[in-house]
């Protein structure tokens, strides 16, 4: 993973991130992050058995139309 950009520090200075709302978002993010691992574990278990029985493994799916993740370019900052 690319190093955290310096700019991340100043982004929050532009728009008021709120206080309670930001903390609440962080709490929910932690919970959803936990769900992510549950989902990942479930996928791993299902794929394990699919492998045994010779079926195609389940690919991770995204709700977004494009899955390609863009790398941060150092020259973009």
């Amino acid at each position: 993973m690319a190093a955290p950009p310096e700019r991340l520090k100043m982004i929050l200075a532009y728009v008021d991130p709120g206080l309670g709302a930001l903390v609440w978002q962080t709490v929910i993010s932690a919970f959803v992050g936990f769900l992510f691992y549950l989902k990942k574990t479930r996928r791993w278990i299902v794929n394990f058995f699919r492998k045994i029985f010779g079926s195609r493994p389940i690919e991770p799916k995204s709700t977004s139309p494009v899955v390609e993740s863009a790398e941060i370019k150092p020259d973009a900052r």
Partner: peptide, 17 residues
């Protein structure tokens, strides 16, 4: 703006609300 791939916080969340 380009987001850090590991950033799980949507900065303008509070503003959207």
């Amino acid at each position: 703006e380009r987001r850090h791939p590991g950033d799980a916080i949507w900065k303008p969340y509070a503003q959207f609300v």
